[in-house]
Amino acid sequence: MARGVLRWAVMGGHGHGHGHDHDHDDEYSELDPMDVRVRALETLLTEKGYVDPAALDELIDTYQTRIGPRNGARVVARAWVDPEFRDWLRSDATAAIASLDYTGRQGEHMVAVEQTDDTHNMVVCTLCSCYPWPVLGLPPTWYKSAPYRSRVVRDPRGVLAEFGVTPPDGVELRVWDSTAEIRYVVIPQRPEGTEGWSEEQLAELVTRDSMIGVGLPLDPMPLGSGGNPT
């Protein structure tokens, strides 16, 4: 299990596209007006006594390195190996997920939806950016941006194709629009060829995208090559 955490944590620090590390305050650029604006707001709220700067650091660390999609991957892997846990996910996902210590903000009311041979589920929040933080962490930018939010409810098959997923004709596409405080996590189908795998190995196959419904689990064959689903 530690392997998955480590990989995710490392990627959290270095996997972004801007070429340098933003983990620390001292790397704020003076040139970006948003840097200046947010730094001013932080100073103001700290001076007023409304926020504790140490709590801000703790919050950032929590969502940058501790709470992310490796949590959800462990939920899925457990569901793949443990039929009782899978039934529990179906009947009370909030409690089942809480048994793995994934609880709290933006995951207070969880529903797990399962991919089957007949149905392919996808999750969106067309109204804002609702996303199950305790199991998936903070949402990726595309999830909370207008192109995905606008199109996935009207053309789910077209959107899926852009993610490289093309379910056979006859598979029903089901989109869950998270318009209330219910948060949805998709349980992908266990890949064939993984008989006898440990829960820890299986979790390595579970991608963030497969738990939103826009991707599939990794192919079990190249496991160990360190490949990322893109």
Binding site: H16, D23, E27, T141
Partner: peptide, 26 residues
């Protein structure tokens, strides 16, 4: 178009992280 980003990208700038934290804390 959808501008895809792979798993693992959480923030693009330090100020984004700070805004999230300020909002949660406030």
């Amino acid at each position: 178009p959808i501008e895809y980003e792979p798993e693992g990208i959480v923030f693009h700038h330090g100020w984004e992280a700070k805004t999230l934290a300020l909002t949660l804390a406030a």
